[in-house]
Write a protein that binds this DNA or RNA. Structure first.
Lengths: 201, 201
DNA sequence: GTCTATATGCTGATAGAC
DNA sequence: GTCTATCAGCATATAGAC
């Protein structure tokens, strides 16, 4: 595979992410993607196997970025409350670095398919994605519980608190698109206050 | 229009909302809806004019419910901070009462169309919806600003704080679906603490 | 690697029998 | 008010010329 074709693939993924973000996977056609890239839809298939493969190539890497990130934080020997603050900062950074891919995370995973005959190693894309998402959520909840146990956070309803924090972070891409000039450090400080401030002891 | 047909319409709207929630408007076919209701797709058109009309009949009423609700709160002569608490309680109640319709609010409005020739009074469905949403958001921000001016909240970054609060409330339907047995009063108390606690003076 | 042409199936919606 | 039959258009994807 040449460098040129790798670049072409990257361009197709980037344009697809933008289109999926705007209209969703189902409402975006292969022709829409081909138009955005500047070729006929048939030519796209010299670079990708299927529309489904594009979705997999966008969602699974971003899910792995999240998991790698939270794993690294968790391996540190910080107090749990500082781990939570670092996780929030990491999610902000990941969102700013990959806004289009991140935008697919809340809702587009439902279009991942398990039974794709073409891709031998992608037969369980849906299952794999769910597993990564659940791993992230469960580790987040575990660290949150530790922050309570260590006396940094009040004994709140954990599931409500974690849902509240994560649903804001998952939607950050949409707020950030309208406020791209904000200083990242300010965004971090404000969000940490918004999301954790009411729960501190 | 008979009572029976009104009930049939309500059933079609309810089943459509469930399907739109699960897969989105674009990925839900008229045949899917007909199957769920228990008739052939052609028969559906004795009850509805178009698929687009179903989306309008789901999204515009729920948007009006939100606006009516926040207007009523705003007309009271409460301190702004208490208005915010009441708005949160109202959003929780609206979500619990209309989970499927509420689930369409974050993302499905992009499929509303402005140029539907069939429906004389619905030519601007998309514009109308955006207007209702913007009205709600701007009034929410105004009340939030008042709560700061009245000394109840810290002088935070208003847009970040309002985005954070509203994105959690808009996603509540999805958390609630997995925790339907929770006591509503507990949910209200926890969410008010999560969403406003860190911002109080 | 891009194109034209095409296969096959699904889409929203309509016509007309009953 | 429900059905069968059908339409025109668009979907994903492939074949094969260049």
């Amino acid at each position: 595979m040449t460098l040129k074709s790798k670049n072409r693939q990257r361009e197709i993924l980037a344009k697809s992410a933008r289109l999926f973000r705007k209209k969703g996977y189902a409402a975006t056609s292969i022709r829409d993607i081909a138009d955005a890239v500047g070729m006929k839809s048939a030519s796209l298939y010299n670079h990708i196997k299927s529309k489904q493969e594009i979705l997999r190539a966008l969602l699974l890497p971003i899910a792995k970025i999240y998991v790698t990130s939270i794993n690294q934080v968790n391996e540190n020997s910080l107090p749990a409350i500082e781990k939570l603050e670092q996780i929030i900062r990491d999610q902000i950074r990941i969102t700013i670095e990959n806004p289009d891919a991140v935008s697919l995370v809340p809702d587009q995973w439902v279009f991942l398919e398990n039974d794709d005959k073409d891709a031998e190693d992608a037969k369980t894309a849906y299952n794999d994605y769910i597993e990564l998402r659940n791993y992230y959520e469960q580790l987040f909840i575990k660290i949150f519980q530790e922050a309570i146990d260590e006396g940094a956070l009040k004994s709140v309803h954990i599931e409500i608190a974690c849902f509240s924090i994560l649903s804001t972070l998952r939607r950050l891409y949409s707020w950030y698109a309208r406020h791209r000039t904000i200083d990242q450090a300010v965004l971090e400080k404000e969000l940490i206050m918004n999301l954790l401030g009411g729960l501190r002891k």
